[in-house]
Design a protein around this nucleic acid. Sequence first.
DNA 1: TTGTAAGCGTTATCAG
DNA 2: CTGATAACGCTTACAA
Lengths: 332, 332
Amino acid sequence: MATIYDVSVLAGVSLATVSRVMNKNTKVSEKTENKVLDAMKQLDYRPNAIAQSLASSRSNSIGVLVSELHGPFYGAMMSGIEAELRTAKKHVIIAAGHSDEESEKEGIEFLIDRRCDALILHVEAVSDEYLIELSQGSTPIVLINRYIAELKDSCIYLDNQLGGYLATKAMIESGHTALAYISGPFWKVDTQARLAGYKQALAESGLEFDPSLVYEGDYLETGGSRGFQALMKAERSFTALVCANDEMAAGAMDAARQLNVEIPSQVSIVGFDNIILANYIYPKLSTINYPIAEMGHMAARWVLRNTYKNKSLSIKNMFNPALILRDSISSL
Amino acid sequence: MATIYDVSVLAGVSLATVSRVMNKNTKVSEKTENKVLDAMKQLDYRPNAIAQSLASSRSNSIGVLVSELHGPFYGAMMSGIEAELRTAKKHVIIAAGHSDEESEKEGIEFLIDRRCDALILHVEAVSDEYLIELSQGSTPIVLINRYIAELKDSCIYLDNQLGGYLATKAMIESGHTALAYISGPFWKVDTQARLAGYKQALAESGLEFDPSLVYEGDYLETGGSRGFQALMKAERSFTALVCANDEMAAGAMDAARQLNVEIPSQVSIVGFDNIILANYIYPKLSTINYPIAEMGHMAARWVLRNTYKNKSLSIKNMFNPALILRDSISSL
DNA sequence: TTGTAAGCGTTATCAG
DNA sequence: CTGATAACGCTTACAA
């Protein structure tokens, strides 16, 4: 591969001049510029991004850490980020954290070692303290779906508790008083917030919170199925089921069908996230909208504004969940 | 951030020695090694991956190009690749090609400029010639879901025609003789192969191919819905619908519901890909299994074997589609 | 086993 | 406006 040196020789100028025409930061006479451009074309020259990063200590690439590379939620998030950054000619380096502390740290270190100009993180397992310390470092970080008071300006988050509240409230307003809940893993922060919203809505309506009506799932279809089966076997019956995400809701609906319980006439279901799937299962799933693609865009804009100094961009940190009514809830 | 130089000073050894203990390729006395290790720990030293790449001209990272960062198909593919590479301590840099020639080339160049040790490509818009030329370059490439005779050893592909054939055959064997088809964009190679399989099955059973029964979709739910509506309006009626992927099948089922046509009693439907969704829509979608996660693993193993010289790994280039019977096909 | 020094391909600072 | 030249942080012959 041709290097900047080859170009300079062929163009009959110095290294520095070639560098200048690439970076357009210093004036170069038109004549020289053309000579250089020609030489580049002839040699099919492509700058070595690695060497550029080393010399300039900026890589024009942003590190993104997601829990998984698959799944509708992370997919939408990555797409949102990439779309925004692409317009600014910045690139994305993605790593997976697998909701595991070691992996998340490893992923973050990989991205930092790669000299990413900034990091967009969707992390679940690392502690607030770790993140606060990380933010002292030289690589700027943005957090998605996590709120840490000390870092609030670099958090792009959803009011998860409000979401849980809205979902539950929708059931209560439809006349339900026996509401089961399929939760995500209890240790996750967003799980806790959503569950808190459920409790809040119950309390507000004078309904008692019954731990035997909540099942700890895994945010996957299988967890939803198992949860539904478990809940049906338990002594307390219910007419409404709120699920901490759509995938578990889909799993629960599947299990319901197998147990011959009809949705929504016998059990109403509401999900959370509003993934595309929610609109294509039957009956169409009522859910809480989580504007994750939009939030991905916003996180990217944060980077554009703060790291690349594009001050014309405005940032919104908190996003609101909203109830989306479809066909999986019936009135009692 | 501490550099190798800081470490060498603190440990009282030379740069080279520090480098040696990092790379474990030359013998270093235990005593020196410990001094160095201590110094590293004290300084919280992390090697600069960029500098390493520049000096060694290998980056330990593999570039992956997918059409989109979202979507169940690409999600599964990226996950498969990442999982395999992670075990070998290699990392992944992902770019999106958006099924557009310019974007795909841009993405590939980005990855090459980043000095990826190898590229795993799921490309649709670039020509065979481009890829053949690319493969002459110094960065090894593997192709997923694409077969190019000249590059066959580095292709990990599915027999798409066989898949289309199997899907169609399943309908015919269930007694259907009027089969509609919702296709992907005609310009895509896999689209053509799947459609060819459909034609092949028809021909084999003496059924005439009727172009008015095929609709050109976009591989998205919306395309499936629109396709179903269009097909229903056309003069020729049909009792079976084969869709070139599951997402369009889901869209078609949704449209069917709105038009009050019952699945599968009035119209049988079969999809393609076997994405998770297929198992959670109602009725459960019969489809063609596309082992994309497995193929992602295999592509990664190809890299491990060929680029990183792990010869103990064996490679399988062609994968077979298989019919998965669920509830969306009824016998006539 | 260890040190010296020449790169790797750019950027960026200084002179001119 | 252009050219030398010193970094950037690390690897890797070549010597010792």
